[in-house]
Design a protein around this nucleic acid. Sequence first.
DNA 1: GGTGATACCGAATAATTTCTCGGTACCTGA
DNA 2: TCAGGTACCGAGAAATTATTCGGTATCACC
Lengths: 146, 146
Amino acid sequence: MYKRKKKEDLDCGLYVTMKIFGAKWKPCIIDAIARGAKRPSEIHKQITSTSPRVLDMQLKELLDFGVVARTNQSGYPLYVEYYLTPFGESILPVLAQMAQWGETHKEFVKQQMAMVLEGSDENPVTTSHDTKGNFRRNDVEMISIC
Amino acid sequence: MYKRKKKEDLDCGLYVTMKIFGAKWKPCIIDAIARGAKRPSEIHKQITSTSPRVLDMQLKELLDFGVVARTNQSGYPLYVEYYLTPFGESILPVLAQMAQWGETHKEFVKQQMAMVLEGSDENPVTTSHDTKGNFRRNDVEMISIC
DNA sequence: GGTGATACCGAATAATTTCTCGGTACCTGA
DNA sequence: TCAGGTACCGAGAAATTATTCGGTATCACC
């Protein structure tokens, strides 16, 4: 594991928030689990825009931070299930609001981006999130995420 | 300016959100301006945990993305003022909720961190946010940010 | 003319995150 | 025994973000 060189400020609420689910794939993973993907292999199948290894790593962090937990029957057909802890569930409304905001403003943002990039160009490599067609039902209803 | 190698998915609401204010100092800057710091030099004085250069760069991005705007009198005593656009103001409630969540859960997070790090150690360099004692008044009231 | 304040920016480097490639281990069914 | 599925992990490369150091330019004041 990477050893940080700079101290983090865990007294800043915002910093804490970013720390826990501000990474590239964590929101997707949380969402996938919230929607019913329990087994690692299921999550891999849901999120195809990055490699299983990456998902494993981020899932591990979510586990370490207590966002998710898993059933630990080290038994025969090797069957593991992850689920959100109460702590993990408390993230959902926040995630939903963030997704909602982005959803609302994405066209404006695209416009701005285009305006800024009117000097730069090139066609970067493709990479995009997708958990297929996704919706959330929590307090803010019908928020697509990823 | 850095030219991205990988394409971004601006159709993912969450990605958009992170893109606009998911950087290390952007929330602090937005907050500082929302609270009344108008001039770059004022912002520098408010946020002392990073260098003016860093703040300038992020401020520039916020400007490019239309989160803030500025008065452009290229005149005598060189006086520039930044302010939040309506787009920028729409961020405040989201930021507040994020800060609130982090505030609520930071002790739990610290605990988890300690648990995970019980093998690693060392004492990293100090760096911490601070905009002095800070509060927000928007819809979720009294959220300290940074 | 020199100093200080103001607002910026370029470029190199450090720090951190993400990704790729490959490997371990266990069990099952052919 | 061999291929296939499942759950993981190590280590280095690549991408991206944050930071530092120094520089430009304008004006005011002494």
